[in-house]
């Protein structure tokens, strides 16, 4: 019996101590981590659209949608943060739409844990730049191993078709849900 008490006590103490340490560390770093995420978001937006001075966030069907305004408070484009499953885990994509909602202005991969060197290339400039000024014709599409022939197609990364198609799926789902609602609201 004595050993049992000692075991429970030791584990309990270690766990409590660990809990306190981590709570403290979490509190200390929380604001910095959130600030980093915000900076990353603003940096990503500024690469894809220039002249954004203000944004207002809205929640549409679980997606964070940002209305981006310029200096004169006129709307210049929309930004959507979409999440979905990739090959190894969640991928978080920032999608910038044109004002008329007919084009994707560009995308940025905010978070991914795809295989480094293969699926990880979704975050490379070569892949992302394919989405620049991509037409939205009942969504977007991907092709494998050849040049895209339609204005709404991108070429999947060789050896990382699942990662590439996941991005396309995530974007299509987000566009499906969000665009009608933006149009409804005028």
């Amino acid at each position: 019996m004595k050993v049992l008490y000692k075991m429970s006590l030791t584990l309990g103490l270690v766990a409590v101590f660990s809990g306190f340490t981590l709570t403290y560390m979490y509190q200390e770093t929380k604001s910095k981590i959130e600030e980093n995420k915000k900076k990353e978001f603003e940096r990503s937006v500024s690469i894809l659209v220039s002249g954004v001075s203000r944004n207002s966030e809205r929640d549409i069907d679980g997606y964070s949608v940002f209305y981006l305004y310029d200096d004169n408070s006129s709307l210049i484009s929309y930004a959507i943060i979409a999440k979905g499953n990739g090959y190894q885990g969640e991928i978080k994509v920032l999608i910038i739409l044109s004002k008329d909602l007919k084009f994707i202005k560009g995308i940025e991969i905010l978070e991914n844990i795809e295989t480094p060197g293969l699926g990880g290339k979704i975050a490379s400039l070569d892949f992302k730049s394919q989405f620049k000024n991509l037409r939205i014709l009942s969504g977007i599409d991907y092709v494998k191993g050849r040049e895209p022939s339609k204005p709404n197609q991108i070429q999947a990364i060789t050896g990382a078709t699942i990662s590439s198609s996941s991005i396309v799926k995530i974007i299509n789902l987000a566009l499906d849900r969000v665009i009608p609602r933006i149009k409804e609201d005028g």
């Binding site: 030791t10 979490y26 770093t29 910095k32 981590i33």
Partner: peptide, 22 residues
Amino acid sequence: TFTIIIATFVTIADLFLKAQFP
């Protein structure tokens, strides 16, 4: 016990990297 101790320090390292070297 060792695992809890290790996990604590790993989480500290992870949070630190996220905050300082995103």
